[in-house]
Structures are given as structure tokens and as C-alpha cells.
């Protein structure tokens, strides 16, 4: 594929695209720079300082919010990834009646707008009189994490050589042995990728948590939202930068795992 742009003329396309990437990252850069600002007034730069990070992380409410977020994301990730793996193993093996319906139900959380999921889940918990709190948030998170965990696992299975499992069975391995010694080692990068995506989606979720969180079950995004409502502050900048870094670290991990995913599948 060769370049089709006219080289003699000035390259407007390149300028436009570079401007786009500046637009995409400028707000985040501003946020990170201001988080290291010494001044109480967030938008007046005086000197470099890390005091807002110290202040934010000695704040007990923020500490509690971080712990809550990690609890929710941890449990939701493990459960959603387990369920997604089981479903992907069935849905990739053969086509059968109900195949399409099962696929559709699993992708449903991707199609329904978050606000609709949020208020529907709230109504459901109210109808069965389930108390709101960390448990209700975890249940809601498991639901929308399943399709995100499912996608990479399914993709990994699609590229896998199914005859290896048959070979295992021919050698009298039982179902558990086939899974433990054949399927799982091959599937591991997909499961890892699915787990990372679930974790990112869960830790960043805001609207669904907002509606189904009871008193005392504040997650980090909910805490940040309540701070933003009070106005711009250097503490928000610091906490937001930390949450941003968590997401970026996770997405880099995902990228590395899925690269490995692509390479290994093609070996077989």
C-alpha cells in the first residue's frame, strides 16, 4: 500500500491529524499538569508540588472510596471472567439451537444505554426489596462486565485448534483434565485480556454505580463526581490523575497481552 497523498503540495491531512491528537490529549495533559500545582486556586500556576496527592490520599473518604472501588472491580472481574469463559467455551464449539439467542443475551449489556441499565437495576432491587450497598453495585457490575470479558476470550477461541481438545479426549483425559492441561493453557492470554477489560470497565463505571449505590457505598468515580459538583479543585486534579493512570496501566497491560494473543494463535 503506497501513499496516495500528493507530496508536492503541503500535507494538510498530516497537519489535521496531528491537531486531532493534540485535541485528544491536551485536556488530559492540562489536568495532569495542574495536579502538581502548588496554588490553592487550581487554575493559577505558582510552583511544582505534590502536596495535593498527599492531601488526597490522607483523606479517609478517598481511601474508603478507593478500597470500595477495588473490592467491586475485583469481585466483578473474577466472577464475570469465569462466567464469560464458560459461555465462550460452549459458544465456540459448535452451532446449535439457541446459539444466536445466547450470543445476543451476552452482548445485550453493550447495546443498552448505561442510564437505562442503571434505573432498571434500581427498580429491580426496589421491587425485590434488595438493600442497596456494595453488593448491589457488584451484581450490577458483573452484568455489564460479562460481554467485555467475553469478547477477547471468544476471539482467542476462534483462532484455536479445536482438534487438540479432541486429541486429549481420545487419550482418555476427562473433561477437567482436557480443560486444565489443554484448553486453559492455550486460552490463558484471552482470559487475562478479558479480565483486564472487565477491571477497566468496572473501575471506571459511574452512572450505574450512582443509581444502585446505597449510603456508604461510595466508589472512587462517585466521590470524584461529588467533588466536581462543588467546583474545580487541585485535589480533584490529583485524584483524577491517579484514576487515569490506573486505566492507562491496565490498557497497556491489555495491549501487551492481546499482542501475545495474536502471535501465539498463528503458531498452531
Amino acid at each position: 500500500m503506497s501513499s496516495v497523498t500528493n507530496k508536492k503540495k503541503f500535507n494538510w491531512l498530516k497537519l489535521f491529524s496531528n491537531a486531532f491528537f493534540v485535541y485528544l490529549y491536551a485536556p488530559i495533559a492540562v489536568l495532569i499538569i495542574y495536579s502538581f500545582n502548588d496554588n490553592r486556586i487550581a487554575q493559577v500556576w505558582t510552583a511544582f508540588s505534590t502536596k495535593w496527592y498527599l492531601k488526597a490520599f490522607t483523606n479517609e473518604d478517598i481511601q474508603r472510596a478507593i478500597v470500595n472501588s477495588l473490592k467491586v472491580a475485583g469481585v466483578a472481574t473474577v466472577v464475570a471472567t469465569l462466567f464469560a469463559t464458560m459461555a465462550a467455551l460452549v459458544l465456540s464449539s459448535s452451532r446449535f439451537r439457541g446459539h444466536g439467542v445466547s450470543n445476543a443475551i451476552i452482548s445485550l449489556p453493550l447495546l443498552v444505554p448505561e442510564i437505562a441499565t442503571a434505573v432498571a437495576t434500581l427498580s429491580f432491587f426496589a421491587a425485590i426489596e434488595f438493600p442497596l450497598g456494595l453488593t448491589s453495585i457488584i451484581i450490577a457490575h458483573i452484568v455489564f462486565c460479562i460481554p467485555f470479558a467475553f469478547m477477547p476470550i471468544r476471539a482467542r477461541l476462534a483462532g484455536m485448534d479445536q482438534t487438540l481438545q479432541e486429541a486429549g479426549r481420545d487419550l482418555y483425559a476427562n473433561d477437567w483434565q482436557v480443560f486444565r492441561y489443554v484448553t486453559f493453557p492455550l486460552l490463558k492470554p484471552g482470559i487475562l485480556a478479558g479480565g483486564i477489560l472487565s477491571f477497566i470497565i468496572s473501575i471506571d463505571d459511574f452512572i450505574i454505580s450512582l443509581m444502585v449505590a446505597g449510603a456508604g457505598a461510595t466508589t472512587l468515580p462517585l466521590y470524584i463526581y461529588s467533588m466536581i459538583r462543588l467546583g474545580v479543585s487541585p485535589e480533584i486534579n490529583a485524584v483524577s490523575t491517579v484514576l487515569f493512570c490506573i486505566s492507562v496501566t491496565a490498557i497497556i497491560a491489555y495491549w501487551l497481552v492481546s499482542k501475545q494473543n495474536e502471535e501465539k494463535v498463528h503458531v498452531h
Binding site: I28, L31, Q43, Y225, V232, F244, A250
Partner: peptide, 15 residues
């Protein structure tokens, strides 16, 4: 940016 928190990305625009 797609995988980072929307709340933070919107907040950054206030700055």
C-alpha cells in the same frame, strides 16, 4: 481515551 474515565475527561474540559 476510550478506556479512561469519561467523568475525568469531561472534567478536564472545565479547566
Amino acid at each position: 481515551p476510550f478506556w479512561t474515565n469519561l467523568l475525568i475527561r469531561a472534567y478536564a474540559w472545565i479547566l
